[in-house]
């Protein structure tokens, strides 16, 4: 996309202004002007959206500190059935044994009744909840400072952030325009954030790197998409497994049989988010594995107590 014509970012206010500001701040635009064409909002101004910790860091580096906008720190984001997906980990490992295995053994042998979720470490996560209206306003203010304007002229170069636009031929798509997203502003923003970061990395500098850069961008989007689709299938499935991809099925069976989150590249979620999503779908590992038996029951009991949060996490 090495050109001097303006680049138009088309999308809902939230998606488009976030995309525009991130591109303006980090992409090698070679002097190209950015303009935003707003489509219908997807969130009401008084809705509250959760920004994941890594998104907060990006926001801070574009000059937007959510704390100053009254954002509240949060420990987790919520799925459609009020599943709580924490940003901090569950407890702490002990002598190389994961806390999940310790908790499972405590359940089996010590009658532990507390849920795994109740062991989410207290402490700051870096994630926060912010009102959509204030957030968009702040993005617009920064946009003005970095030279992004509302759309004033026709342009051939389009970054599409709105999935409902079909008439335009975009140069590339980001966020919700890349994949079908369930109604969750948190997931939607995450998709925008991650795809725009990939776009920045793969922004074409010259005519002759365009195809390569586009292929790399697609590769990264596919990985992102696979991860988010799996999480959506899990959170929205209501217990049905028909929508599970083969990768998700494998991860479920590894979790149930081995108590482990099978690692995949470009995963968009942390192991504790997967664990929480599995547990809320009532997928519990069948056994704690052998490694946990290297600990004595006394060690397990003590450790579980030391990991028990002193204050209830606010979700």
């Amino acid at each position: 996309m090495a050109q001097q014509d303006p680049v138009t970012i088309v999308g809902s206010p939230l998606d488009a202004w976030l995309t525009a500001v991130m591109l303006a701040r980090f992409a090698p635009l070679a002097g190209a002007k950015l303009q935003v064409l707003e489509t219908s909002p997807v969130a009401r101004v008084d809705d509250v959206v959760v920004l994941r910790p890594e998104m907060v860091r990006t926001n801070v580096s574009i000059g937007l500190d959510p704390k100053r906008l009254g954002a509240q720190p949060v420990q987790a984001w919520a799925g459609p059935h009020r599943q709580s997906l924490p940003f901090n980990s569950f407890g702490r490992p002990l002598k190389g044994v994961s806390f999940v295995a310790i908790w499972l053994r405590a359940r089996e042998e010590l009658g532990e009744t507390r849920s795994l979720q109740s062991f989410v470490s207290a402490g700051q996560t870096g994630g926060c909840a912010i009102e959509v209206g204030r957030y968009v306003q702040a993005l617009k203010t920064i946009a003005t400072k970095v030279g992004v304007t509302p759309c004033t002229q026709a342009s051939e170069h389009i970054v599409q952030a709105d999935p409902n636009l079909t008439e335009a031929q975009p140069d590339c798509s980001v966020g919700a325009a890349v994949m079908t997203l369930r109604p969750s502003t948190t997931l939607r923003l995450q998709a925008v954030h991650k795809s725009v970061l990939a776009l920045i990395d793969c922004w074409s500098w010259r005519e002759n790197d365009r195809d390569l850069a586009a292929r790399e961008y697609d590769r990264r989007l596919q990985a992102m998409q696979a991860s988010i689709e799996d999480m959506q299938a899990l959170l929205w499935s209501d217990g049905r497994t028909d929508d599970y991809s083969s990768r998700l099925k494998h991860r479920v069976s590894v979790w149930q049989n081995v108590g482990r989150i099978a690692p995949v590249d470009d995963d968009q979620f942390t192991p504790q988010e997967w664990m929480a999503a599995f547990l809320s779908a009532e997928l519990v590992p069948s056994a704690a594995g052998r490694l946990v038996h290297s600990l004595t029951l006394a060690e397990i009991s003590d450790h579980v107590e030391t990991c028990s949060p002193k204050e209830v996490a606010n979700v």
């Binding site: 494998h250 590894v254 049989n257 482990r260 056994a287 490694l291």
Partner: peptide, 17 residues
Amino acid sequence: LIEMFPHGVSAEVARTE
């Protein structure tokens, strides 16, 4: 192997992973 060490003797899933 240690992380996935089978609890019983059967270990189909651990093996695949």
